[in-house]
Design a protein around this nucleic acid. Structure first.
Lengths: 205, 205, 205, 205
DNA sequence: TATGAATGAGTCTTCATTCAT
DNA sequence: TATGAATGAAGACTCATTCAT
């Protein structure tokens, strides 16, 4: 590092953020990014291996935080609901986790929109599926326990995958259609209600 | 070497179909299409105004058919449910329409996937929103009638829009995750059940 | 000729006129002309050998008329001024010819502007030089007679060519900078006065 | 193969010069320029924003120098002739400025021809009008002073504009029709005489 | 650390023209 | 008379990437 500690790299990241956010991965131009950062192409390639890696720099932070919450959520849920599951009477941990995710998504609003809707062409273009898989894995672990309880159907893989996918889409909707974090949090309960409604319609006979 | 019967045009369309489907609108290359069709660039531009119009040639047919079903659906539903609405006990017309849509989507499977998930950059890039709007408009007309019935809440615009959006996503899911029309039709009832479950969870207090 | 006598050809000419006038020779598009004429490319090539010939169809008429006036003018002037030349006291035949030329130029205003300022790339791109040569040839015939008169210098070829060229430019100016034939005719005397002023400054010692 | 000293850029400029001069702005081909420079298209666009900027590189130098002389000319003339104006007996500063302009024009002969007669389509396509306007503005400042002197008419805008335009055309003629600077300078006095002759024919009653 | 130069394949689109029917 | 189809070369311009210095 010279005098200006990471200055160039920061300018590149800032310019990249704006370019990616406004044009999406494929249509973003590295040339443009360099120009707006006041830096030459060579400099970009000193700090980043390629376009994909630069893109990663922009979206990795929120991605990491969301991943962490999801992982913790699963661990927690598994411990808690081993023996009972009484969804009806509480908004319980699901609601808490949902709030956490909304908080993260709006903390990095533009980055998350970028990651979840404009990443086509990049190595993150299937990130949605990754989230779905993580959630699904968690639900699968819970499955056997739920099935022991009264009135719960066995749900086949297709349906489970579908419902998990919809859940992810719901959060993306919240992210892309709410003006502010406050609005999102205000609407969240209705959305959770909606998700659960669908969930129980399928799980209960 | 003058071909008859629109042979050249057909070869162009076929090559375009493959290129668009495998790469999406933006990343498809007209050069490639021409090369694979064994035709010069000039020929392409004799038949099609530009890339967008060529793309339209591939996706307009399913788009048209889906639009028609949606329009008829709305008209029908509005007439039928003016006075009563007993969702619980039947799978009624909604199910019928859903089946119709699935039929169309799988009749033109690749084209629909293209249109609904790979159209970014083309004039159809907001087609999903258009479907959502059409459905939403239909539901809004039904709103006042539903509100007269026992136990139905008034649903605000945000939530209505959200639910409609999810409904469209559900169909896209069905399209992209089912191996065959048969599998899609087999899963459809569960999905409809899921949608309705969410729907009533919100509509009923 | 079929029923519609020369209809297609006329439509082509009309469309070509508009295209050439608004874009100049090089930037005019034959494709566009055909489209606006509601005719296929093949038809154009049935009536016209190539772009140049079509262009000729538009500009040949005024060209012909101007040529004729210039030719007659020379013949006339030569006969008249064999023995005397008293420019100072009359506006004489020069003025008459100038009026005639202005009349023609404004009768085909757009076509003449096209021919004189937008013909680059066509076979008429040196038409200005042709006019200059014609005029010059006329003046050369008059030269020996003028030189016999008192106070007239011999004018070298370079200067004669220059003055003739300027004279042509003066008419082009009149054409391109006057709003109407009337305005052009109103300004014409001043321009002729200007030309003659220059002329005599050189011819007389 | 990395060249030093702007070698590539120079080769590009040289090739561009030749291409533009021989074909004019519109018909010059960037592809051709690159080929003749032995360079790839990308290289061209590294050095120049677009065709217009490359063209500017060729013609901006003479343009700048001519502009400077014109500007200084105006300032000077205005100072000098505030109180008297005796055109008849001297060739005065007008002649000096004319010589200067001829010197510049022939220093960059091909470039000036390009700029003044082949720039259609480029951002310089109206450069002639710009020169006319500059000169005209200068004359307008002198107008009131001239009118105070004996025997000077007021000249209307149309005529003034016309005469200025002709003056510019005269210099273009000199440029395009003289074999060498020497020939141009030899002819210049006659041309100035011609211009003044026209000028006084109009200015004096 | 970063620059400046350069690659080379690629983008979509337009052109005047030809010719069998 | 005219069409409809097709050519093939060319247009300006952009791309992500490389590399010697």
């Amino acid at each position: 590092m010279t005098a200006k500690d990471g200055e160039t790299k920061n300018r590149l990241i800032k310019a990249a953020r704006e370019e990616f956010i406004s044009k999406g991965y494929t249509n973003a131009s590295l040339r443009n990014i360099c120009k707006n950062a006041g830096v030459t192409t060579g400099a970009l390639y000193f700090f980043f291996k390629d376009k994909d890696e630069l893109f990663g720099e922009i979206v990795s932070m929120p991605l990491f935080e969301i991943d962490r919450v999801l992982t913790e959520h699963q661990a927690f849920e598994f411990d808690t609901y081993q023996d009972s599951y009484d969804e009806e009477e509480s908004e319980g941990p699901d609601m808490d986790v949902s709030i956490l995710i909304v908080e993260i998504m709006f903390k990095y609003k533009q980055e998350c929109i970028l990651l979840l809707t404009q990443a086509a062409g990049s190595k993150y273009e299937n990130i949605k599926d990754k989230f779905v898989s993580e959630l699904e894995a968690g639900y699968k672990k819970m499955g056997p326990h739920l099935e022991k309880l009264n009135g719960y159907n066995k749900v086949d893989d297709y349906t489970l995958h579908y419902m998990t996918h919809m859940q992810v889409e719901a959060f993306i909707y919240l992210l892309t259609h709410s003006k502010s974090k406050e609005e999102a949090l205000k609407e969240l309960p209705y959305i959770v209600k909606h998700i659960r409604g669908g969930w129980f319609a399928v799980f209960k006979s």
